[in-house]
């Protein structure tokens, strides 16, 4: 038997292993891990502006992860969440470019359009799965790529800025169309309130609502759930659309506060990152905000690292990815113990 203290620090092992792995990579490129990690740390928390950046990046990530908790509960792999963020951005941009209203009304409409856009894209993936028998991973993936292509088309076509054909983005939106920002940063308190509300709703839905229970049954055994009276197709599509709406809201936050216009690669990989967040949190609701915050810090740190050392910013993605991988491989001492027992037997 393993002594108790080892069990207690066990969850740290994947984190340490991931840090060790990235250190080796840094050494390969003749960069000092100490310098690099402290640059990242400073990049994330070095100034109040940077901390606000981390929070601003955290908000859409949290929204997406909250939505994914719902789809995972229903046993669905919503890989299409990237595309849902993008469609949210497109929805918000559409309202921002085509209407001129008073700020509160304008922003409300933008957000609603964004949520509708995300829900639509998710709904298509759900419909392909339930009606067409196309696994949501493949449907979602194709829709992600189609969403990227659609963005490129829009910003190089109909929504191209007047000054010319760059592939970069639309014109910046007017002040009234953007979310009110905190002290010149990219952080919008309104977005934080929205994300907090969304997360609470998800938490309640999962714990105490009939819908959450239905999704749980659906995720474990869709056939039995159907026979017990759950309209499995409808609930699956609804779960997808719910997640899509939150992802769309995240997309709105991206265009209306992080940026000020629709850009290429607007989602910034937040959708995939959110999938990693939920996996690292091992589908435990309360862990999700913390893990998401941590990931946000890592990625923001990596951007500063790139500016400092010219090292590719994908180091941040590597660090998060490796961490989740090590959690899958090492995170559960019980499984590993089972492994050892199997070896003793053989």
């Amino acid at each position: 038997m393993r002594p108790g203290w080892l069990d207690r620090i066990w969850p740290l092992l994947p984190v340490l292993a991931a840090l060790a792995f990235t250190s080796v990579l840094l050494l390969l490129f003749k960069a000092s891990p100490v310098v690099a990690f402290s640059a990242m740390l400073e990049g994330a928390f070095g100034s109040s502006e940077r901390i606000l950046n981390v929070i601003a990046f955290w908000i859409p990530l949290l929204l997406c992860a909250a939505g994914l908790l719902i789809t995972f509960q229903a046993g669905l792999w919503n890989i299409g969440i990237e595309g849902q963020i993008i469609l949210g951005s497109i929805g918000a941009t559409w309202v921002a470019l085509s209407l001129e209203l008073a700020a509160p009304l304008q922003i409300t409409l933008e957000i609603l359009a964004a949520m509708a856009g995300g829900a639509l894209w998710a709904g298509i993936a759900g419909w392909l799965k339930t009606r067409g028998g196309v696994h949501e991973i493949f449907g979602g993936l194709a829709l992600n790529n189609l969403a990227i292509i659609l963005t490129n088309y829009l910003i190089s076509g109909p929504w191209q800025p007047p000054e010319g054909g760059s592939f970069r983005g639309t014109v910046p939106f007017g002040e009234h169309a953007l979310l009110p920002l905190f002290d010149g940063s990219r952080f919008s308190p309104l977005a934080l309130i929205l994300a907090g509300t969304a997360f609470s709703i998800v938490m309640i839905a999962l714990r105490n609502s009939t819908w959450g229970l239905k999704l749980k049954a659906l995720g474990r055994n869709s056939r039995s759930a159907f026979l017990l009276g759950v309209s499995s197709n409808r609930e699956a599509v609804l779960a997808m659309m719910f997640c899509g709406a939150l992802a769309g809201l995240g997309g709105a936050v991206r265009v209306l506060s992080w940026f000020d216009s629709l850009r290429q690669s607007i989602s910034g990989g937040i959708g995939y990152l959110a999938l990693l967040v939920v996996m690292l949190a091992a589908y435990r609701v309360l862990w999700v905000p913390f893990v998401a915050f941590f990931f946000s810090a890592v990625l923001n740190g990596a951007i500063v690292l790139q500016l400092r050392t010219q090292l590719h910013s994908s180091l941040g993605d590597i660090l998060t990815g490796v961490m989740v991988l090590f959690v899958l491989l090492l995170g559960d001492p019980i499984r590993l113990r089972g492994l050892r027992r199997a070896k003793d037997d053989g």
């Binding site: 229970l213 749980k216 049954a217 474990r220 055994n221 056939r223 039995s224 759930a225 026979l227 017990l228």
Partner: peptide
């Protein structure tokens, strides 16, 4: 257990 009951859910659920 395949068509009627959901493994992992309690009787109360």
């Amino acid at each position: 257990v395949e068509e009627g009951l959901v493994a992992g859910l309690t009787l109360t659920e």
